[in-house]
Amino acid sequence: MDQIPIMKIGDCLLVSIQVDMHDQLAISLQDNLTTRIVQTRARGVMIDISALEIVDSFIGRMLNNIASMSRVLDAVTVVVGMQPAVAITLVELGLTLPGVRTALDVDRGLALIRRLIDDEAGS
């Protein structure tokens, strides 16, 4: 079965979702990510969903879960690249993902992760 690759860049993990997510894939991504966070002691997780054409409540819940679980594991999660049509639909669906940090693209996502980690170190 195919899996979504998780890349490590410095102390961040980068996941770029390029395929149509089916439920099993979402669940295995969740499992793999938490394992990798612990293994690599990553401080940040970035999930690029710019290629996703839809985010339904199942995938929305997965994003939420990843954010919550990484928080417990002392890592910040940033979701980047959500398409406008997807964002409009998610809001209409009633999912505003309040616990998930977002950024426009990968560059800004990395900058946001840095800032969040530094803020934590500073406080």
Binding site: L90, V91, T102, A103
Partner: peptide, 12 residues
């Protein structure tokens, strides 16, 4: 409000 929420989801 929805526009604001959608923009936030996109990272703006």
């Amino acid at each position: 409000i929805k526009t604001v929420a959608a923009a936030r989801l996109m990272g703006a």
